[in-house]
């Protein structure tokens, strides 16, 4: 049996949008070594996105010709890069979620053999993304007064986008509450080691009627899409 289109689209959009955000660091990263690290993560995610979107239809059409409301990525991944601490906090929250989810998908969370195989391959990439984000969280959290403050602000600022990660995705046989619990334990562990505290406050925005998975996005997403899609839309059907 194949996974429903909504499920592969949701996972594919997460990967595509975060990949684009990370790609925005190219030429702007604080140091060359870190620029390459972020670009590597972006390319891993782009590879996942291509495979997932291809399972849902034509990858280019899906990436470049859909309107904002047709994207079903979680709002967390569309949040702007901000400073380096924001990028790391976003990556920490998302990679920890993605790793746990893909472990499930590789191990019975889907009856789609292709999706299970993709998840099994991707989980090794994602484990590295999570490791990278964890190491930076430890260093920024337990670093200077400035780095600590920035890391704390970033973790708190993005906290309200973490609840959405565990809303059930149609067609995936996953214990979402259990996933959330495991995620929270893992994040708590990292933040404790980094001498930081787990943010308090709601984990979703007050207008919970809709969120990224329903095509409701935050303001910066439209601008990101415009930049991502304008070249393709300006030259329909062009090829090298």
């Amino acid at each position: 049996m194949s996974a429903p289109r909504t499920a592969v689209l949701a996972l594919g959009d997460d990967a595509l949008v975060l990949s684009h955000r990370l790609g925005e660091w190219a030429g702007n990263a604080p140091v060359l070594e870190e620029e390459v690290a972020l670009a590597n993560i972006a390319l891993d995610l782009l590879g996942q996105a291509r495979a997932l979107l291809t399972m849902a239809g034509d990858e280019d059409e899906l990436a470049y010709l859909r309107e904002e409301r047709a994207f079903t990525n979680v709002q967390l991944v569309e949040q702007p890069n901000g400073d380096f601490a924001h990028t790391i906090a976003r990556q920490l929250y998302f990679s920890a979620y993605q790793e746990l989810l893909y472990e499930r998908l590789a191990d019975g969370g889907t009856d789609d053999a292709e999706l299970a195989a993709l998840a099994a391959k991707a989980v090794k990439e994602v484990a590295y993304h999570r490791d990278h984000a964890e190491h930076w969280t430890l260093r920024l959290g337990d670093g200077t007064e400035t780095s600590r403050k920035r890391m704390k602000d970033a973790l708190e600022g993005l906290w309200r986008h973490t609840g959405e990660l565990f809303r059930p995705v149609e067609g995936l046989d996953v214990d979402w509450a259990g996933l959330d619990e495991q995620w929270a334990r893992r994040i708590t562990g990292v933040l404790e080691r980094a001498a930081l505290t787990v943010p308090e406050g709601p984990r979703s925005s007050p207008w919970a009627a809709g969120a990224g998975r329903q095509g409701v996005h935050t303001e910066p997403f439209g601008r990101m899409l415009a930049e991502m899609q304008h070249l393709h839309r300006s030259h329909p059907g062009a090829s090298w």
């Binding site: 140091v31 060359l32 070594e33 870190e34 390459v36 690290a37 590597n40 490791d131 990278h132 190491h135 260093r139």
Partner: peptide, 20 residues
């Protein structure tokens, strides 16, 4: 060679720069 704040990060940077 590469720049890194400490040995652990140097290993990771090396992985990204030289073994991808």
């Amino acid at each position: 060679s590469l720049h890194a704040p400490d040995a652990e990060m140097a290993l990771r940077n090396a992985r990204d720069l030289y073994t991808r």
